[in-house]
């Protein structure tokens, strides 16, 4: 059995204008989870609960075997955390920050840090004040990575980076995973990044996890089928169709529980199957959110079987 590095069970947190509801998350050690959601969907609150910075009202959170928030100090010894709203001390240099972190984390790897300095094109003697946004993000990532943490928690790590820097950062994240004992949890609005590097995917919308699964299962479950119907034919009701678009003669089905038998069922009904297309994560995310917002009850029934 794989050990879980992050485990949320039934976590809720209420604020006056927003609440997180019954969040379940499971991230196996050695893998990378992409956490996708719109602005204000609850990504940052979830991450703060994960880090023990915000206390959940109910439910349990276990990170690297430590109960959060009670055991946060111990858990954070093995966590590298970078969030979008995190700043370094403007008046100090990057070199000072590196020394400071090194004095606290015994596993700090100076050779790796030097390596990252070169790769991220950062100058340690420069004060944080003088760095661009991208350089600050990379500096914070360097400080987290060179601790060699067992778990990296990154809130929007690639936001605001230029394409070259983004590629470097993704490469470093993947390089971390060459060690099977290390795990990454990252949130992003960039579904391309998530689709590319994550093993596990969780979608959050309006404070609820609306879908969470292994990425390959996830991408396999969703298909778009383009059909051509002869006049006066109606399609049978197929399970897992979340949206029927297109025109009446040329319908396009969006399906979240695809099975090759569905294609046969369409053909049996007299439809010509023009194509069965895989969907990108972005398309899946949008279809998922929209179908749930349109039919909140109907779709939530399928969630149980899907997330299992």
């Amino acid at each position: 059995m794989t050990h879980l590095s992050v485990h949320f069970t039934g976590v809720s947190k209420r604020y006056p204008h927003f609440s997180l509801d019954d969040i379940d998350l499971a991230l196996p050690t050695g893998s990378i989870m992409g956490f996708v959601g719109a602005n204000g969907a609850g990504k940052s609150t979830t991450i703060r609960i994960l880090m023990g910075l915000v206390h959940q009202d109910s439910g349990s959170v276990e990170v690297l075997g430590h109960a959060m928030p009670a055991d946060q100090a111990a858990a954070k010894r093995d966590i590298g955390f970078v969030s979008e709203d995190m700043r370094l001390y403007e008046a100090a240099t990057l070199a000072w920050h590196m020394k400071f972190i090194q004095s606290i984390f015994p596993r700090w790897d100076q050779r790796y840090a030097d390596n990252l300095l070169r790769r991220f094109d950062l100058k340690p003697q420069q004060k944080i004040k003088g760095l661009s946004h991208g350089q600050r993000v990379k500096a914070a990532l360097l400080l987290a990575l060179a601790r060699r943490p067992r778990l990296l928690v990154l809130d929007e790590p690639t936001t605001g980076l230029d394409p070259v820097a983004r590629r470097e950062v993704l490469a470093e994240l993947m390089a971390v995973l060459i060690d099977e004992q290390r795990t990454i949890f990252f949130s992003s609005q960039n579904t391309l990044d998530v689709e590319q590097i994550s093993d596990q995917i969780a979608f959050i919308d309006r404070g609820r996890i609306i879908d969470s699964a292994n990425k390959e299962i996830f991408l396999d479950r969703w298909r778009r089928i383009r059909l051509m119907l002869p006049p006066d034919t109606t399609l049978p009701r197929l399970p897992g169709v979340v949206e029927v678009g297109g025109s009446s003669r040329l319908p396009v089905l969006t399906i979240n529980q695809f099975d090759p038998a569905m294609v046969a069922a369409c053909q049996d009904a007299g439809a010509a199957v023009q194509s069965v297309d895989a969907m990108t994560l972005e398309e899946i995310f949008v279809a998922n959110v929209q179908s749930r917002r349109d039919h909140p009850v109907a779709v939530s029934e399928t969630t149980e079987s899907v997330t299992a």
Binding site: M51, L53, Q72, A73, A74, A75, K76, R77, I79, G80, F81, V82, S83, D85, M86, R87, L88, Y89, E90, I104, A140, A144
Partner: peptide, 17 residues
Amino acid sequence: RQQTLPFVMSLPISYLE
């Protein structure tokens, strides 16, 4: 205000510390 608090709180400390 300067958002260095998340940086400090990423260290292995509790808020009381």
